[in-house]
Amino acid sequence: MSRVILVTGPARSGKSEWAENLAIQSGKPVIYIATATENLHDQEWQQRIEKHKQRRPQDWVTLTVPVELAATFSNAKSDTCILIDSLGTWVANFLEQDDLSWEKTLAELLQLVPLVEADLLFVAEETGWGVVPAYPIGRKFRDRLGGLVRQLGAMCETVYLVTGGHVLNLSILGFPLPPTKS
């Protein structure tokens, strides 16, 4: 049986580093799925991507998958650890999708997660801790990512929160909410 782990927290909290540490601890070959695409016209973005690349061990396989996330890990074998970084960027790649199409995309991903044989490590940003965004696209992003993180977190064996330079295992410290009635 595979392990499904969610690592969440605010920007620059160390989420990716903690997830990378967990991937190494798995002792399995790692496939790193990057949901961000390079943008050669944005030097700061390129520097962020490069920083992530430099931290990863040389033997990890890296795949850039901005959209077809579920299809990419659907056939992964049990001797593999897959690290998906990050769900926030993945959600952002679908902001132009209408709500019905988004719900279909989300359902496809969430239905697949329990069927995957490989260990899955998801990294996700927490965006809803501040004010409600003043613009519709910002609210759409926050709501979609928040809904995904909540639903995925309910499916995970372990959920970590990384903040303030500390890692908290929410699966030990807390308890899951009852399922939503929708």
Rank of each mutant, 00 (worst) to 15 (best):
T35Y: 06
L83E: 01
I82D: 01
N21R: 14
L173A: 11
S13C: 07
D98H: 08
P136E: 10
G128F: 07
L173T: 09
T64E: 14
G164I: 06
S101T: 13
G164E: 06
R150N: 14
L95V: 06
I5L: 04
S26H: 05
D79Q: 12
I84W: 05
R142Y: 12
P114T: 10
A154F: 05
T62Q: 03
V159W: 05
D85W: 08
T37E: 10
E157F: 11
G128Q: 09
L170N: 09
S182E: 15
R55A: 00
D99W: 00
H166R: 14
G146D: 02
V123A: 07
D59L: 03
E103S: 12
D42W: 11
D98I: 02
R56E: 02
D85H: 02
P133L: 00
Q47K: 13
E17P: 01
R150V: 12
L6F: 08
K140W: 08
N21H: 14
I24M: 03
K51S: 10
E17H: 13
V7K: 04
D119K: 04
V7F: 03
V65D: 00
L168P: 01
S182D: 15
F73A: 02
S101Y: 04
A76T: 08
L100Y: 12
N93S: 14
L177A: 13
E108W: 05
